[in-house]
Design a protein around this nucleic acid. Structure first.
Length: 251
DNA sequence: CGACAAATTAAGG
DNA sequence: CCTTAATTTGTCG
């Protein structure tokens, strides 16, 4: 109908990418979708020949299949057909295991958004990082607010764990599906949410269980091994701990 | 191209 | 503790 019009935004974005050709024509025209149980209720999941491309909670689409399809279509410009199977490894990934093994289709995103999500994907299950950490990880330490915007756009929440990105002061921050769900997700994967919230209250810098992590606002720090002891950054160094790159930017 | 919104942050009252 | 300016990116007119 419209032919190969070069003004199609999807076509433009595809233009610069070397993507393996689809196995068949229908695969290129349709996306597949299915329902699957997640850690916090039912999810609707869409995927293409490239990978998982769109995930919403049933609650967020009013438990309505058509709403889900409409949103998908607005983003990907193709209709959805019901799939018989869930993509391999997805159930495990949603439980926080081997999520990296599941392919995702992020082609409709901008390079910046892809960078943000790729970095976010590295955050291990049970841990969190601040928005400022993600910004630093992608080489744009000042793009902190933009990181939040990009995460809010995450088409595949849970699979790419944007719920593990919190504010630098330890408070949990916002979430696509609401702050409440963010907290429930974190608790479900055994993150020490109380410790984070306590940190937010105390306004004292924190070094996480990996031993090297703290927050940019800090002038003092404490460690997981010695959670009550406050130290200056100099004392942290003297104790043989590496101050985080947020406190002391690399270079 | 200009204006505005956004899942932040840090500084100042 | 609360308010505000700074900053970066994406989107829309």
């Amino acid at each position: 109908m419209t032919g190969e019009d070069s003004h199609d935004p999807l076509a433009l974005r595809l233009g610069g990418l070397a993507v393996a050709p689809p196995r068949d024509l229908t695969g290129a025209l349709y996306g597949d979708w299915t329902r699957v149980d997640g850690p916090v209720g039912e999810l609707l999941v869409a995927f293409t020949e490239v990978g998982v491309s769109y995930i919403r909670t049933a609650a967020s689409v009013g438990d309505d299949d058509d709403t889900f399809r409409d949103r998908f279509h607005a983003l990907f410009q193709r209709p959805l057909r019901r799939a018989s199977d869930v993509p391999a490894g997805l159930r495990r990934a949603l439980r926080g295991q081997d999520a990296a093994g599941v392919a995702v289709d992020l082609r409709v995103l901008t390079p910046f958004e892809r960078d943000v999500l790729t970095a976010t994907r590295e955050i291990p299950t049970g841990q969190t990082r601040p928005y400022a950490w993600v910004a630093h990880a992608i080489g744009r330490p000042k793009a902190v607010r933009a990181v939040g915007t990009a995460l809010g756009n995450n088409p595949v929440p849970l699979l790419i764990p944007c719920h593990r990105v919190t504010r630098s002061d330890g408070s949990l921050g916002q979430y696509v599906f609401g702050a409440e769900l963010k907290e429930r997700l974190l608790r479900a994967e055994e993150t020490n949410v109380d410790e984070l919230l306590d940190f937010a209250r105390s306004r004292v810098a924190y070094i996480g269980s990996d031993g090297v992590y703290c927050y940019p606002t800090c002038t003092r720090a404490r460690t997981a091994a010695d959670p009550r002891g406050l130290r200056t950054l100099a004392a942290v160094r003297a104790a043989g701990l590496r101050p985080c790159e947020l406190c002391t930017p690399a270079g």
